[in-house]
Amino acid sequence: MRRKSNPDARMPVRAHLVELRKRLFLSAIGIVLAMVVGWFLYTPVYEAVQRPVLDLAARDDALVTVNFSGLATALDLQLKVAAILGVILSSPWWLYQLWAFVAPGMRKVERRYTIGFMSAAIPLFFAGIAFAWWILPQAVGILVGFTPDGAANVLDAQMYLTFAMRLLLAFGLAFVFPVLMVALSWARIVPARVWLRGWRWAVVIIAVAAAVLTPTPDAITMLILQTPMTVLYFAAIGVAVLRERAVSRRPQDPADAEEGLEAEA
């Protein structure tokens, strides 16, 4: 008797595109709502981001300040900061939407790992932000340190706050990518051996991504982002390999086997 096929295994391309549009739409709604919260958090965030500059000026007794150069600069900057804060604050929501888009490609027994994915992705995202927040004063000190003696360093507010907020977001996204790698491996979409075989290309792509994500053209900031991304890439491969070995050694789950028969029918 022919078994009923798994609808997820034969989902047409159009259905994937509809699902992608749905997840992007839901993510956008969450980000917009979080932007409203980010709008009201602008002042404390601005004061916190400006603190490294003020501390540097007080320490070196130098003229280092943040300057608003245009009439509408403050409003434009508040909108940009609110947008980035919206992405950061709504990260649990859009990370769940990302998982919900990948999950249909998994078997039923594997969809139980939703809590595990979210438990790893959300802390890693905020760990990346925390790491970027820790290196922000060092990055500011290094870059401002190139100012010649006797010269003033008047930082454009638009450039500086965009630099700081993009740095936080870039590190957060970089720290989440390894979790996505593991999810794709667990979904049997990209085996661990594929990630490992392409490690040379991955290092090159990581370098290019770090150069694009970092808001300034200096090599120091790029290397600061590239190094943990590379380490986490190989760590994700290690987790995927351990997972595949564990699955190959244990008895097959009856529910998993039944679903596999349905897919083959």
Rank of each mutant, 00 (worst) to 15 (best):
Glu19Lys: 05
Tyr42Thr: 04
Arg51Trp: 09
Arg107Asn: 09
Pro92Met: 00
Val37Asn: 04
Tyr46Gly: 10
Thr114Gln: 05
Asp55Ala: 08
Leu56Pro: 00
Met11His: 08
Asn67Trp: 14
Leu75Arg: 14
Leu89Ile: 06
Tyr113Thr: 15
Asp55Trp: 10
Asp76Cys: 04
Pro7Lys: 05
Ala57Phe: 00
Arg51His: 12
Asp60Tyr: 13
Ala58Arg: 12
Ile84Ser: 08
Met11Ile: 08
Val102Gln: 07
Ala15Tyr: 15
Asn67Ile: 07
Leu20Tyr: 07
Val36Met: 13
Ala82Arg: 13
Ala74Glu: 08
Trp39Glu: 10
Ala28Pro: 08
Leu54Ser: 14
Leu85Gly: 11
Asp61Phe: 08
Arg59Lys: 13
Ala100Arg: 02
Asp60Met: 05
Leu85Ala: 03
Gly70Ile: 05
Leu63Trp: 04
Lys4His: 13
Leu41Phe: 11
Gln78Thr: 10
Glu110Lys: 01
Glu47Asn: 14
Arg21Ile: 03
Lys4Gln: 15
Ala62Leu: 11
Lys80Asp: 01
Met35Pro: 11
Ala58Leu: 09
Leu85Pro: 15
Arg59Ile: 05
Lys22Tyr: 13
Asp76Arg: 11
Ala48Asp: 06
Phe25Arg: 09
Tyr96Arg: 06
Val13Ala: 03
Arg21Asp: 02
Arg3Trp: 02
Arg51Gly: 04
Trp93His: 14
Arg112Asn: 04
Ala72Asn: 11
Thr114Leu: 13
Gln50Arg: 15
Leu89Ala: 10
Ser90Leu: 01
Asp55Gln: 05
Pro7Phe: 13
Arg51Val: 01
Gly105Gln: 15
Ser90Arg: 01
Pro104Glu: 10
Ser27Trp: 12
Val18Arg: 15
Gly105Asp: 10
Ala83Phe: 15
Val45Asp: 00
Asn6Arg: 11
